[in-house]
Amino acid sequence: MKRVLIVIAVGFLLAVLPFIVSGYWLGLITQAVILGGFAMGLDLLVGFARMPSIGHSTFFGLSGYGVALAVTRFDVAIWPAVGIGLLLSLIAALLFGPLAVRMRGLAFLTITLAFGQLTWGLTTRWSSFTNGENGIPGISRPSFLWDIETVVGYFYFTLLIAIAISIFIIIFAESPVGISLLGVRNSDTRMSALGYNIHSRRTIAFVVAAAVGAMYGILNVFYNKFIGPGSLSWQLSAQMLLSVVVGGPVSLWGPFLAGSGIVILKTMLIGTTQRWPMVLGLLYVVSVVFLPGGIASLLPKVRARFEKMFRGRVTE
């Protein structure tokens, strides 16, 4: 409950951003919220259940493609197209998930990569339908309670949905099912000996992370008014996986922070260096070596430091 309140409070804080920052930055922050939220959902799979997926951009991209194709190829109205997009991702997750969760560790990583490459390959090759490498432009945003065509309007739209999804993730994480994901990561044997079907638990983690990715994929396609195979790329999956690791698995807020931070860092650096992946790699190495618990592990340290300062003052 406390964490739900924190999410709402942070949401309110972010809501003042349009009064402070420029339109350029607001757009960037919108993107940052989208990818940060995606990373937060992935934490349920990678952090909680400790299943390192390098294919979850599949569900992020597929929902976007679902919307785009439904609108441009089949003249579906926008809101129903959103439903189709989400459904497409969900079906893919329910198809890939139960197969992938039978693998562990590196094998799981590899099979998620394979599934991801499958959808990426299909999308890039099937040009007559998906427009291949060129992607699908000209996707208009749906009508909503307020005008979301403007940068500010779309920021608030994204923020609202991100808050809703984050609250769901937090409630889910603290629920009996969420706790059981922590059990699955620790000991399969013990979990089955306690009456848990471990394959179904792992599938739940896989599908929920995919569903969260799919929802942010929808926000992404409307933000860009465009979808291309980049949204399905393994590089995006890897960036998300990295966000979870750098942010601090299981903390939820850490991956959100890292996921959005990486977007902003990338945008700032891409103008000055051609070697963005190298910077990302360096970031990963540094964080693994010096901060194995991720950004989230800093909080207890900071807290301890404050407590020490406070205590020091009291005893003085």
Binding site: F172, E174, P176, V177, S180, L194, G195
Partner: peptide, 20 residues
């Protein structure tokens, strides 16, 4: 202990309420 007890109480499929 909770991990075991929530199964026996039939609450292990609940995802909308805190485990505790």
């Amino acid at each position: 202990v909770l991990m075991a007890a929530q199964v026996d109480a039939g609450k292990h499929q609940v995802f909308w309420r805190a485990a505790n």
